[in-house]
Design a protein around this nucleic acid. Structure first.
Lengths: 156, 156
DNA sequence: TTTTTTGCAAAACCTTTGCAGTTGG
DNA sequence: CCAACTGCAAAGGTTTTGCAAAAAA
């Protein structure tokens, strides 16, 4: 069994492409919106709304947090943006056009393993066969203990 | 491969047992603490701190939310209480002495599948072998789409 | 021009913390 | 008695909402 893609995401690789995706859906390109997109293109990892509003350490101009949230939500609805919840902490946002990742998160030390979806397909297949459930590890990671913390839990 | 238990939990089946577990550790039994325990024994499913403080629809007397949080945390540290994060929403608390459950949560419709840990052992084994990771689905559930929502996602 | 979007402020939501007063052992 | 604990109030961190002003198409 091979696993189908998850989200109806739009194909784009650069800012112009993302802007085209916006326009296709009749959503306006505003300064605030462009800033969020620029930030997401500049970031090489998922970032929080707060980081985006703060300017990503100078990568983009600072902007209003509420608007950042609204724009992330709008663009997520359009399939341009995705977000992931890593443990507690704030949601982290990334471009949906980027290579998709799925995550394993160590509850003890916070170690994050980032995988291509195909690497988790066997797990997904097993879960589907046994429980009729289509597992996803891109929005909420697979949670547990990494090797080191698992050892420590046994000995400690 | 068979999977080892996760948390160092104390054996008890009734309020008296839980109280004994407290005393063993030199922790006082207070009115507020007893109320939380009574609430957890009364509830047949994990409940939020807010629900406990609110009295669980009359099952127990209402009490102070901050104390409920503090007591849940204390008792969790002692292995008497566990909590799970189901999607967004507040953390949900249950007695650690109860039969342990692990969860599959549908991100789309919120459907919750509750399983005995052994049912997920094959998944755990596969994840361990492939990624050296000890997966747990009792604190953060395995997230994805249930059969119905998965179908809908394909056709819809 | 008209509909969408912004920026600000305020609130909502869940959780933690400070502290003076109370209580369990 | 005295360390542990409570209740209240306040704050912390994340996200949402209301609304008048601004801007996109």
């Amino acid at each position: 069994v091979t696993t189908a893609p998850h989200a109806p995401s739009i194909a784009f690789t650069d800012l112009a492409g993302a802007v085209a995706a916006l326009r296709e859906r009749g959503v306006r390109l505003t300064a605030a919106r462009r800033l969020v997109l620029e930030g997401l293109f500049a970031a090489d990892r998922p970032v929080s709304a707060d980081q985006l509003a703060g300017g990503l350490d100078g990568a983009i101009a600072p902007s209003d947090l509420a608007s950042v949230y609204r724009n992330l939500e709008t663009m997520e609805r359009l399939g341009i943006v995705r977000h992931v919840h890593l443990g507690h902490g704030p949601g982290l946002y990334a471009l949906a056009g980027r290579e998709e990742r799925e995550y394993l998160l160590c509850e003890s030390c916070g170690r994050l393993v980032s995988l291509s979806p195909f690497e988790l397909d066997p797990v997904r297949d097993q879960v589907r066969e046994r429980f009729g459930f289509e597992a996803r590890f891109d929005h909420f990671p697979l949670s547990g203990l990494c090797v080191d913390c698992a050892k420590e839990a046994l000995t400690g």
